[in-house]
Design a protein around this nucleic acid. Structure first.
Length: 130
RNA sequence: AGAGAAGGUCAUUCUAUCGCUGGUUACUAUAGGUAACGAGAGGAAAGUCCGGGCAGCGCAGAACGCUACACUUCGUAACUGGAAGGUAUUCGUGAGAGUAUGGUAAGGUAACAGAGAAUAACCGCCACUUAGGUGGUAAGGGUGAAAAGGCGAGGUAAGAGCUCACCAGUGUUUUAAGUGAUUAAAAUAGCUGUACCACAUGUAGGCUGCAAGACCAUGUAUAUCAGUGUUUGAGGUCUGUUCGGCCGAUACUGAGGGGUAGGUUGCUAGAGAUUGAAAGUGAUUUCAAUAGUAGAUAAAUGAUAGAAGCUCCUUUUGGAGAACAGAACCCGGCUUAUCGACUCUCUCUUUUU
């Protein structure tokens, strides 16, 4: 499978209804500094994984800092999303990634922990299937 | 050269790779496709403190109340903001900066200290009387942010604007200058504190904000209407009852109002921007030319690597740093945050000529 590093709007979780559903019925996975809320959907889609990123207003007061973290997280996901995508055969996943730390981190700090989170998720998915 | 004051300008740049959001074109052929080209973060985008546009709702008219503001002239779409100017006062050697400017007639408050904060007697001075006390006195002392214009002479028991000269201040009048606030000079009057408040007068303000508002509308349920169907006819109605007539729950089909998810619009050509010229001390205005220059919506404008310049530390290499901060309908201001760099006009100090 060819690896694509794109992250278009189709791969994002935008609809309010979808997000509400996700929070009504979800599984949680915690790996510092991320909290991952996800849900499995028994349906095949063109883009199997839809993600949304959240950085709390309480943790970062300034809009500049929130944007900075979001952009770094998005970048890290974009480069490593294939870890999860490779496991999605015949179903889809909605998920929301919440940043829970209170300090700013650079891209270099973020990328390894992003890999950890996605690997953990991939393991859980394969457990369910088997 | 150093230390400052007021105003203005800028807010690192470039390359490569991987991406994001709109736009245009082309191609698939309809999906939050694919490709190419070009665009994409501020001086405060911030606070949401004033003023306006725009939109909805409200609205005979008048008065009271509430809130804000209060010197003059100018300027503006508008303003409680801005520009220029005036007076008083505080700070600073100075360039300058801050604050205030209805408050008159009558009224209230002025901590602590101090005898006393506005019809002042603690010490002192003078007179009378003599342990004590009574009266006069604002020259001197002490307290205080502030002590009843200053200083000299006369005068007096001692003193005192009690009287006089000079000076400061206030009111009134006249003349001169200025569009005006006001300033200058002269005359004259009384003999003179300051700040704040109650209070009064004038002016302005209807309320809500683009999550305003307008439009489209899948699915689901459904008001209403039309048609069809049923040997279903609950129930209602016409009369006191029966028969009979009429309407009709329900089912299907179509129309259909409102409207959820979602989408479109509002939405970026504007009291616009840049450059130049002219008018004006200035805010600003007028004219000409130029280019087309963000529009997201769980919310784009990014990441990585390298190079150059700047600042600081080491001084050979090298190392560290770059602030405050992110559009959310759009403008004009104000306020607050801010690493630094540049520029122009001034002030003070020192050195040299």
């Amino acid at each position: 499978m060819e690896k694509s590093y794109k992250f278009k709007k189709a791969e994002r979780l935008c609809s309010t209804a979808q997000i509400e559903e996700l929070f009504n019925e979800h599984e949680t996975l915690f790996k510092f500094p991320f909290k991952l809320v996800w849900r499995k959907i028994e349906k095949e889609r063109k883009h199997p994984v839809q993600l949304s990123i959240s950085v709390g207003k309480k943790r970062f007061r300034n809009a500049v800092d929130r944007n900075y973290m979001k952009r770094h997280i998005r970048e890290a996901y974009r480069l490593n999303k294939h870890i999860v995508l490779d496991h999605c055969n015949g179903f889809s996943i909605d998920m929301m990634l919440i940043y829970v730390d209170t300090k700013l981190r650079s891209f270099v700090d973020i990328e390894p922990s992003m890999k950890d989170v996605l690997n953990k998720l991939a393991k859980e998915i394969s457990n369910i299937e088997s």
